[in-house]
Design a protein around this nucleic acid. Structure first.
Length: 442
RNA sequence: GUGACCGUAGCUCAGUCGGUUAGAGCGCCAGGUUGUGGCCCUGGAGGUCGGGGGUUCAAAUCCCCUCGGUCACCCCA
């Protein structure tokens, strides 16, 4: 034993691995999400875990932490060691590739959802993984996507999050055109970095942002202040428009953005108060978003990261096909949400095992009877396991108790006997039963 | 990628100023007689003290390197 060279297994940080009990709940979540997506008429797509690097990097965002795929011995031959494939970093890019590739067969507007793992080679942290599930819904259309869909995305995300019962949350919406037009109107050159800084408003505060804009981007104090003034605007109705007008910067792009955001916010007016708000500091997400942007967060854990996000993009598939394919979509961070609720012990892990009934095996001479009961119950839709060996009854019961199996079935202990009994483990009561008619309730 | 902190049984941790066979609780396994779980009692298994090197008569303890982890930044679900 001492000289046995064992590899001591350890978890790999950033790659979640749930126990069967927890995983069971996660699978229920996935089922729920799928049903909600389908209830809005979205069809499923599953793309390979890998894409060609040319596809993954098509937008030129080479700073992304992409895992590449290589054979261990690749490069031994004359093929060279350069990786050609990478694990997908999100689901939007594979979707865009798919849409471009199958362009001729699609029915537009093309609505699909995708629930798959994605991989990012970043440092793990709470709520931040290197392998995690994303649940994406997107619509793409030819020559312009109806703004109706911008509202639908938020509605679907809202439906998913409330159906899952994750506790209080809020979806914040904005439109990049507003911020972009405003910054252009103020003569700010570094639009993207400025947007990133403004997005930190709730994190580092107005003063922090003003200072960062001056120090990092060299903006004048007054300009920085006017930027923050815009970012501070938020409202759950269309009143944000007036607040923007007051700031006195005007151009076409701002008008366009305001008009779109008003349309979307008003279309979502039927959702519960406070669930959806217009928040002009919002700018998070990928650079390719051009119009509406979304971000969802827990209200209970305000400094936890975003739990869903998305937006409208002008032309995602443009790098793959000579067609204009604008779209809008949203992604729900299943793993992030789920892992947080697991950590906070807020998940209803009502039962560990899928087993409804454990059939006791009193002895080999009644195995056939016991197995018959198990089959009968399975035929009636119950999940049933038959104890594998005729050990002490106490041990079999302990097994059921530890797996939190709610019912234990006692077939007759001797051949020739006919009485079956069922024990309700939680109540501790045992009564005669018939496998053909027994029901858990009565 | 940058920075700070942390690594002792499966888990949570104790281990004095360096000192002999490294401990506890929980968990796990087996018993406590013949057909019934949770409680209790008894016993048992389980540790390269993250790894390597150094200082020393002697290292879990001090020093260096390294690997791993956590958190913050970056970025984002």
């Amino acid at each position: 034993m001492a000289d046995k060279n064992v590899y001591k297994p350890r978890p790999i940080s950033g790659f979640p691995e749930w126990s069967p009990e927890v995983r069971r709940t996660e699978q229920r979540w996935i089922d729920t999400i799928r049903r909600v997506f389908e209830s809005y008429g979205y069809g499923n797509l599953e793309t390979p875990s890998v894409e060609e690097l040319d596809v993954l990097l098509a937008k030129g965002e080479t700073d992304k932490e992409i895992y590449t795929l290589q054979r261990l011995h690749e490069g031994d031959g004359d093929e060279g060691g350069e990786a050609r494939l990478g694990l997908h970093y999100d689901l939007t890019v594979p979707f865009a590739r798919y849409a471009a590739q199958h362009f001729g067969e699609l029915v537009f507007p093309f609505k699909r959802y995708q629930i798959q793992r994605v991989w990012r080679g970043e440092r793990p942290q709470e709520g931040r993984f290197r392998e995690f599930y994303q649940c994406d819904v997107d619509v793409i259309d030819l020559n312009g996507v109806s703004l109706t869909f911008d509202a639908e995305m938020a509605e679907v995300a809202h439906a998913v999050l409330s159906t899952l019962g994750i506790g209080p949350f809020r979806l914040r919406l904005s439109n990049r055109k507003i911020l972009q037009g405003y910054l252009a109107g103020l003569g700010v050159a570094d639009v993207i970095p400025a947007i990133r800084l403004l997005d930190k408003l709730d994190k580092i505060g107005a003063e922090g942002v003003v200072e960062a804009l001056q120090v990092q981007l060299g903006l004048a104090a007054e300009t920085a202040q006017r930027c923050v003034a815009l970012a501070e605007i938020s409202s759950s109705d269309a009143s944000f428009v007036e607040a923007v007008r007051v700031l006195g910067v005007e151009n076409e792009l701002i008008d366009e953005g305001l008009e779109e955001l008003v349309f979307v916010i008003e279309a979502l007016g039927h959702l519960p108060e406070g669930r959806v708000v217009a928040d002009l500091s919002l700018a998070r997400g990928f650079d390719y978003y051009t119009g509406t942007v979304y971000e969802g967060a827990f209200l209970d854990y305000s400094d936890f990261g975003s739990i869903c996000s998305g937006g409208r993009y002008d032309d995602l598939a443009g790098s793959f096909i000579n067609q204009h394919l604008p779209g809008v979509g949203i992604s729900i961070g299943l793993t992030r949400i789920f892992s947080k609720l697991v950590a906070e012990e807020r998940l209803d892990l009502s039962r560990f095992s899928p087993t409804d009934v454990l059939v006791v095996l009193p002895g080999e001479e009644v195995r056939a009877v016991a197995a018959g009961v198990a089959q009968t119950l399975r035929g009636r839709g119950f999940n049933v396991e038959l104890y594998h060996e005729p050990t002490k009854i106490g041990k079999q019961l302990r097994y059921a108790a530890r797996k939190e199996i709610p019912f234990v079935w006692f077939p007759p202990f001797k051949p020739g006997e006919t009485v079956h009994e069922v024990k309700d483990m939680a109540a501790g009561v045992q009564a005669e039963a018939d496998a053909e008619t027994w029901t858990p309730g009565g």
